[in-house]
């Protein structure tokens, strides 16, 4: 995808009530609707921490959902608007579990180091299982105490009882995050 169309894509879904001056030329795309993915994650019982269970039509979707599930625990993501985009490009050593770990860590680190950027929608653009590489984009905005709710902070991703079930039709993924 060319740089230009990428930019267009990233800013194409600004909500109608946004101020045009603040968001410049992208506001002209305000009639384009942004479809947020359905929720395919839940939080399961775990004594100290949170176990995220996600699923999807493909393993990519399950990964995306796990990351969105993580952010949804930190704030009510329905209040997050599509104002900014961040891209990650990661590689892991080992197996699919290492890749999932790295993928979630990377998003948590983007949040922690990019002024509390919270994506509402995460899209995997490239998923290379041989090279264990993922390129993904997150669409969202910077956390703002005046507009967003405070949930609980996710401290870290763990390997504890991590499970990836590719054999099931729902591609279930289980991951425990430390909070």
């Amino acid at each position: 995808m060319s740089k230009e169309s990428e930019n267009k894509n990233q800013d194409s879904n600004i909500e109608k009530n946004q101020n045009e001056d603040e968001h410049g030329p992208s506001a002209s795309n305000e009639d384009v609707t942004f479809d947020y993915p359905p929720i395919k994650y839940e939080y399961l019982d775990h004594t100290a921490d949170i176990q995220i269970h996600s699923w999807g039509d493909s393993i990519e979707e399950s990964f995306e959902q796990a990351a969105m599930g993580m952010f949804a625990y930190m704030t009510d993501t329905d209040l997050i608007e599509n104002r900014d985009m961040k891209q990650i490009d990661i590689r892991a050593d080992g197996d699919l579990q290492n890749l999932l770990f790295k993928f979630l860590c990377e998003w948590l680190e983007v949040y922690g180091t990019e002024d509390y950027f919270i994506p509402r929608k995460i899209e995997i653009n490239l998923f290379d299982r041989n090279e264990l590489r993922i390129i993904a984009r997150g669409y969202g905005e910077l956390f703002d105490l005046s507009r967003h709710t405070q949930g609980t902070e996710v401290k870290a991703i763990t390997y504890s009882n991590m499970q990836i079930h590719e054999e099931t039709s729902t591609h279930d993924v289980y991951v425990i995050v430390d909070i």
Partner: peptide, 30 residues
Amino acid sequence: RGLGHQVATDALVAMEKAMKRDQIQTNDRQ
């Protein structure tokens, strides 16, 4: 805060490789 969490996460990744190299066996990946 986030600084400590990141130090721990970084170490986990580095140690996974070291465990293979030094052939350390544990009962749990974590």
